[in-house]
């Protein structure tokens, strides 16, 4: 299934985190990675709870409207029903405020009754404090979970990417935790924020998301689409749109 193929490509960061690094530090990291692996819950699409989502919409709306002044365009481009793979990018480290803005817009537009799942990094779904995300339909990123959601006729959101890996690879994090990038940033309240493992307070940047017209893989790329070609095409479209959206911004940070 070509649609699953993209998710496969996007999630092809590998599950294995058996060994990594060397010596004591390596063994410690390896042990920690095994703990994380054990905590990854099996995807259960039934954990998604429309009532919970509906009751949390006002909270999301307050955050999206007051802090981020969120704007989502082109929701009419998303097919009204049936399986659909939504490929996007997110910013903001582990906080993913753009996901909050987009999921709010998706659910208010299509209704909480429409099945909608989001693929997330193993670390995210392993945190006990973030277990509520499963009620929103967040499942661990894997080809199996993608196929399961799409075969159930759901909309599925995936954020592929993360290819700069020098520091993460040097520390063995790419093999241990599927972390291809170890971001180092300046963020509140920590100052220098390594990895964003504890999250941070996002700045009140205006968030604009645009849903582009749908791509029918078989119609545009033939019966046996070349996945690398499709991947490059999707990335190019996204980059062009991001450039156009970035050009609209007038103020630093605030947007």
């Amino acid at each position: 299934m070509a649609q699953t193929g993209i998710a496969d490509r996007a999630a092809r960061n590998g599950h294995a985190a058996d060994e990594g690094g060397a010596g004591l530090a390596g063994r410690l990291l390896g042990g920690l990675a095994r703990q994380v692996q054990q905590r990854i819950p099996a995807a259960d699409l039934d954990e998604r709870d429309p009532d919970y989502i509906r009751e949390s919409l006002p909270r999301q709306w307050l955050l999206a409207s007051l802090w981020f002044r969120g704007e989502v365009r082109g929701l009419g481009n998303i097919p009204e029903s049936g399986p659909v793979l939504l490929v996007g990018n997110h910013s903001g480290g582990n906080m993913t405020p753009d996901t909050i803005v987009f999921t709010l817009a998706f659910y208010t537009y299509f209704g909480v009754e429409r099945p909608f799942y989001q693929l997330a990094h193993n670390l995210v779904v392993s945190f006990p404090q973030l277990s509520f995300l499963r009620k929103f339909g967040t499942v661990a990123a894997s080809p199996e979970n993608s196929a399961k959601a799409l075969q159930a006729g759901a909309a599925l959101l995936v954020y592929p990417g993360g290819d700069r890996r020098s520091l993460a690879r040097g520390l063995g994090l790419d093999r241990l935790f599927r972390l291809k990038v170890l971001p180092i940033s300046l963020a509140l309240p920590w100052g220098i924020n390594v990895g964003d493992f504890l999250g941070h307070i996002p700045l009140p940047a205006k968030i604009t998301v645009e849903a582009l017209p749908p791509i029918d893989l078989r119609e545009e790329f033939g019966q046996q689409p070349d996945l690398d070609e499709v991947y490059d095409h999707v990335m190019r479209l996204m980059q062009d749109t991001l450039d156009a959206l970035a050009a609209e911004r007038r103020l630093p940070v605030l947007g």
């Binding site: 509906r54 009751e55 006002p58 909270r59 307050l62 409207s65 007051l66």
Partner: peptide, 16 residues
């Protein structure tokens, strides 16, 4: 409004 949304629901209604 949104039934069951609690304090945030109350607040969102007023902000909107």
């Amino acid at each position: 409004g949104v039934a069951g949304a609690g304090l945030f629901g109350w607040l969102a209604e007023r902000v909107a």
